[in-house]
Design a protein around this nucleic acid. Sequence first.
DNA 1: CGCCCGCTTGATCGTCATCAAGGGCGGTGG
DNA 2: CCACCGCCCTTGATGACGATCAAGCGGGCG
Lengths: 228, 228
Amino acid sequence: MAFQPIDARQELRNLAMFQNLQDKQFDKLAATVRERDLQKGEILFHKGDKPVGFFLVVRGQIKLAIASTQGQEKVVDLLGPGQSFGEAVMFMEKPYPVLAQALMDTQLLFIPKNDVFTALEKDPLFARQLLAGLSIRLHTLIQDVESFTMRSSAARVVGYLLSNTERLISGVERVDLPANKNVVASLLNLTPETLSRVFHDLTEAGLIKVEGRHVLILNSSKLAQALA
Amino acid sequence: MAFQPIDARQELRNLAMFQNLQDKQFDKLAATVRERDLQKGEILFHKGDKPVGFFLVVRGQIKLAIASTQGQEKVVDLLGPGQSFGEAVMFMEKPYPVLAQALMDTQLLFIPKNDVFTALEKDPLFARQLLAGLSIRLHTLIQDVESFTMRSSAARVVGYLLSNTERLISGVERVDLPANKNVVASLLNLTPETLSRVFHDLTEAGLIKVEGRHVLILNSSKLAQALA
DNA sequence: CGCCCGCTTGATCGTCATCAAGGGCGGTGG
DNA sequence: CCACCGCCCTTGATGACGATCAAGCGGGCG
């Protein structure tokens, strides 16, 4: 496959984190950023690796997952273009708690730890953006814990659908699954079999219609009631 | 009960977060900090409340929990003296995702949001400490997710015991449960019944001995093997 | 054309929650 | 000091949810 060249400055400027950075700081940062290309299935880092910076997805898709001893894994997050990951772990003296793997051919930018730290010292607003970013991630994780511990499998699926619905120009409400159903199932902490059955049941109840990776929401209000 | 007076300056100085703060900044902060006393069972904030600062536990104990619609709840964290909470949520525009309740008579210090923000602008090192704190919390949460999703109930209990063992001067290895078993069970995402049964089994296997809130570790190496 | 992979569907099983009842300990009041 | 009550914890019986095992279907790609 042909990896296209990246305009690093452009990509970085789009990150909320860097919006308010002074030009001088920004230039230094943009100069040391490195491009990293991954082929589908390639692993960026393993659980236990030592972090030396964070990453921004420019094209493609990255899967973050927890790996158990016996090859089983649980998908924790899926990152697409414009999303960054690995920030938090820079500030600790600990190795990566997760595995990062490309689900398709992917282009990343790597931002070295040192650059972030100097930017931090020079720009308080940058710090605030970083803090905001981490806080959101924490919030999401807490919602995940809530979801895994207090909801049935069907409720988790319904919750996922409701919070990822897009309204198309045609007025149709639809959810585009970000990956194949195996991966989505793992993200929701289900087996593929269970996800399939839940989709089946919701379809029979006339609430949704599944077309490959697209899920049409036929009755969102009734679907919301199924959350109880 | 008699709440004792708090030396706010002393307590705050002990927080890693404030170690490097310049005296001038620190004085301003110490001046606006408020004391808050809670009786056992009293609720500090509900899920959905709007955060305006964060808290430091001086004496007593605070429980953070997720509440479902029907009164059930899942304990997310237990905070004791010297521990702070509520930092992350200050940096978002969102309400508290959890409930905070005193498990015993408790004294807190409240640090207003505004003070934190001005300290942030004046002191880059403060930012770094805050980031480190949030990162650790994120890391813990990921481990929780791993634990809930990839481990059996027995393995969760064993993991908890192993990572909370203290070696006494006598050489005895012991875990002091931080709260009654109902709360600990919820923290580990178990019912009290299941926790009781796991303790029972581990005791029968000669691995531990339970004495009220103390758990003696009789055979830590064999216990570690039970993690698989 | 045929294979592989993703997905579905069915049958069975295990883990853990739930429901129910009883025991023990501490605290309070007589 | 004793009796009572409430709460915490344990123990047993049952059941449900979702995982696992197994098989088959269909589509995309070599």
